[in-house]
Amino acid sequence: MKNINILLADDDDDDRLFFGEALEQLELNISLNWVVNGVDLINYLKQPDTQLPELLFLDLNMPLKGGIECLIEIRKTNYLRNLSVAIYSTSSAEKDIEECLIHGANIYIKKPSDFNVLKSILHKAITINHQYHSSGLSKENFLMVI
């Protein structure tokens, strides 16, 4: 089975730990890398030797450069524009969801507090075909709910 390269951009230590533990329990061949702010994310993605992830989980509220700013920069950069981006945020505000949809995120996930729900949602997000999924995006199928 092909190794799935996942990148998590999140400044919260507990959220990164929770996320990593959930991934470990999925029966998928996953390689996880993480960064703690938006500046580190963009620098990481722009390194010439970086293997781009199959899926980026992007927190909205990070220091130095927020998730929306990162998403806009990713979509404006030729070799990053097709990167699959899952917004992974505590926010369920309509304005945040709409802004992420407008700026080209593939999916929006509200961070669950329940570990089993997190595992379920991560499995679904990782195994979905994002290129197909993004072709018919609407607000109804953009927000991932388990």
Rank of each mutant, 00 (worst) to 15 (best):
M62T: 06
K76V: 03
K95R: 10
V145C: 12
I87Y: 01
D11I: 06
N5S: 13
P53D: 01
S113W: 05
L55R: 07
H133P: 05
I126R: 08
L52M: 09
E99D: 13
L58Y: 00
A86M: 11
L83T: 04
G66I: 01
S31T: 09
N61S: 14
L71M: 05
D15T: 13
L143S: 06
M62I: 07
N29Y: 05
L80R: 09
L7S: 01
V39L: 07
A22D: 02
L52K: 08
L143T: 07
L45S: 06
Y88M: 07
L143C: 12
A9S: 14
G136Y: 13
I42V: 15
L17C: 12
L52C: 06
R81F: 07
I128V: 10
K110R: 13
I97S: 03
Y88H: 11
L45E: 04
L60M: 08
Y108D: 03
T50W: 10
N106M: 01
E98G: 01
M1L: 06
L143V: 12
G67P: 00
I87L: 04
P53V: 01
I121H: 02
A9N: 07
S91V: 05
N129D: 14
S84V: 07
L64F: 09
L71Q: 01
I121V: 14
K111A: 12
I4T: 15
A22L: 03
S134A: 12
Y79F: 14
I4Y: 15
L118I: 05
T50V: 10
D40E: 15
E27M: 11
N29A: 09
E27L: 13
W34K: 01
Q51N: 11
K111E: 10
N43C: 07
L83M: 15
E21K: 13
N29W: 08
L23T: 03
E99K: 09
I4Q: 12
E27T: 12
K119I: 02
I6C: 06
H130I: 02
G104V: 04
K95Y: 14
A22Q: 03
G66C: 02
D114A: 12
R75D: 11
E21Q: 14
H103M: 08
L101W: 08
T50S: 11
E21C: 09
A9L: 07
T90D: 04
N33I: 01
E24G: 11
V117A: 09
N129P: 05
E98W: 08
E140Q: 13
G136Q: 13
K110W: 00
F19W: 04
L45N: 04
P63V: 06
S91W: 02
I97E: 05
H130T: 03
W34V: 00
L28D: 06
V117P: 00
L52Q: 08
I97K: 03
D59W: 02
N37E: 11
I30F: 05
H123V: 04
D12A: 12
L56K: 05
E54S: 11
G136N: 14
D12H: 15
M62S: 03
E69C: 02
V85H: 03
I121W: 04
T90Y: 02
E98R: 11
I6D: 02
Q131C: 03
G38K: 01
D96T: 00
L137S: 05
Y108R: 02
D11K: 08
S31N: 10
G66A: 01
K76Q: 15
I97H: 03
K110L: 13
K76A: 11
C70V: 06
L137K: 08
N29R: 10
I107P: 00
I107D: 00
S84R: 06
L17K: 13
